[in-house]
Each structure stands twice: as structure tokens, then as C-alpha cells.
């Protein structure tokens, strides 16, 4: 199986450790991961902010770059959702027949990381060890977009030594919402405050999720409040072994 990693522009720039973690887990499971260098961004920011025409070249680039792979794996539920739901829509509205075809070919092979592990590889125990108290925040795109359900939790439960604690009001949005956090900063901050309260109430050492964007927002809020809770992408927990994090 030819597996391509779609790192996402945001992780590429800000959270390369998440990409390294994905590579580490997949290699540990015996797979070879490729990283097509022509990849950039799925166009989510442009699409969600109303700049659809500006997203179209990014959709075309995505389809071109990932053509021919059996699986395109990404450690971002929101970027996977963007590709799956909105790339076909943009191709239909702005693209030519060839782009529509390319998009239709690639989209079914785009998988969010946890979904890829559980549904495609059929694995729940990835041989990780992480002896810490952890809470999981199901991001909106994981929960209601991709409907990941319990998949991330099943993976986490199989991690050796983990003390997994429920997050109160887990399914409510953290208030990030991309440019919402800037355009409606006050409302975003109010939602963040409630989410951060929930995290602190768990006494977890680590908060994890399937999207670094939400994690940067929640982690940033926790850090500003002087909390020592660490925000970590779920992939980084799955990559951790008794020898430590890679």
C-alpha cells in the first residue's frame, strides 16, 4: 500500500512533531510513508472565510499531488473533512471536468489518522506506552464532521499505562473556528474559558485531540492561565513508547 502523508500547512509550519509522530507510528506498524513535497494546503481557511476562488488552485494542487496513492493520511480531522466534503463542491463550482475527475479519484482515499488506523489498517493497539493522566477533546470536525465516534478513544484505551479521564461537556465546541477566533475574538474567548475550565476539572496532565488547531487554541488559553496541562496531538501519544517520545 502506497501511503502518502498529508501533513497540512499548519502542522508543517507549527507542529512538525505531529508529522514525525504519524510517521513513527506507521513505520512501527511496518508501513512505508511517503511525503510528496509538492503538497501545501487543503484550502480550508480560504473556503471557510468565504474566499472560494482562492481555494481552487489549492484543491487542484492537492488532487495532483496525491494522485496515485492508495491512501492519503492526515493528522487533522478538519483538513480531512475539507477535502472530503468541500473539494468536490469547489471542483464542481469552479473547476473543469478534469479537475472534478481528479478530485473524485483522490477524495475517497483521504483518511484522518485515527480513522486510517482503525478502519483501514484494522489496528487499535499500536504498541504505545504513555503513563500519564490524559483527557481527550473530540473536536467538532472529528465528532460531527467525520463522525470518528469512539475510534480515537479506542486507540487511546489501548495505550499502555494511560490514565484516560472523561472531559466534561466534551462535545461542545472549544471556540476556535479558524478565523472565528479572530473575527469574533470575544465570543471565542468565552467558549475557550469554559472548555479550559472543563480540562482543568479533570486534573489531566495532557489534553489531546485529533486537530492541532483546536489544541493550539485550548493549550494557548491554558498556558495563559498559568496551567501546566500540555496540549498534545493524539498521534504523539500513540507514538510514545516505553523508550519515551520519539
Amino acid at each position: 500500500m502506497r501511503i502518502a502523508l498529508f501533513i497540512t500547512c499548519f502542522n508543517d509550519t507549527m507542529f512538525p512533531g505531529t508529522g514525525r509522530a504519524v510517521v513513527s507510528v506507521l513505520e512501527r506498524l511496518g508501513h512505508t510513508v511517503e511525503f510528496p513535497q509538492e503538497q501545501t494546503c487543503c484550502g480550508q481557511m480560504h473556503f471557510n472565510t468565504g474566499y472560494r476562488p482562492d481555494a481552487v488552485p489549492l484543491v487542484a494542487r492537492f488532487a495532483r499531488t496525491f494522485a496515485g496513492y492508495d491512501a492519503v493520511v492526515t493528522p487533522s480531522a478538519s483538513c480531512a473533512g475539507m477535502a472530503r466534503e468541500n473539494h468536490p463542491l469547489l471542483a464542481a463550482d469552479y473547476g473543469h471536468a478534469q479537475l472534478q475527475q481528479q478530485v473524485a479519484d483522490v477524495v475517497p482515499r483521504v483518511h484522518e489518522f485515527t480513522e486510517f488506523l482503525t478502519d483501514v489498517l484494522g489496528v487499535t493497539d499500536v504498541g504505545a506506552s504513555f503513563p500519564h493522566r490524559v483527557s481527550y477533546h473530540p473536536t467538532c470536525h472529528s465528532l460531527r464532521g467525520l463522525r470518528l465516534g469512539d475510534r480515537p478513544l479506542e486507540l487511546l484505551r489501548a495505550v499502555k499505562g494511560i490514565d484516560l479521564v472523561d472531559l466534561p461537556d466534551a462535545d461542545s465546541c472549544c471556540g476556535f473556528g479558524g478565523t472565528f477566533a479572530v473575527k469574533n475574538a470575544d465570543t471565542s474567548a468565552a467558549m475557550l474559558a469554559d472548555k479550559a475550565d472543563g480540562v482543568l476539572s479533570t486534573r489531566a496532565e495532557v489534553l489531546c485531540a485529533a486537530d492541532n488547531s483546536c489544541l493550539m487554541h485550548i493549550g494557548g488559553g491554558l498556558s495563559r492561565r498559568g496551567s501546566s496541562v500540555r496540549a498534545m496531538h493524539l498521534a504523539e501519544i500513540l507514538a510514545a513508547t516505553e523508550g519515551g517520545t520519539p
Binding site: 501533513i7 502542522n11 508543517d12 509550519t13 507549527m14 507542529f15 512538525p16 512533531g17 508529522g19 514525525r20 511525503f35 513535497q37 477566533a181 479572530v182 473575527k183 475574538a185 470575544d186 474567548a189 475557550l192 474559558a193 493550539m216 487554541h217 493549550g219 494557548g220 488559553g221 498556558s223 495563559r224
Partner: peptide, 17 residues
């Protein structure tokens, strides 16, 4: 608006690519 209530991690020295 973003930074009033949130810290942002410094970007890493090297990108994933």
C-alpha cells in the same frame, strides 16, 4: 483578539518538510 487570551507556541526551528 487572538493573543489577549491565548499564548501561542513559538514556531519550531524547522518545519516538517
Amino acid at each position: 483578539g487572538w493573543s489577549d487570551t491565548r499564548d501561542t507556541p513559538a514556531p519550531p526551528a524547522e518545519s516538517f518538510r
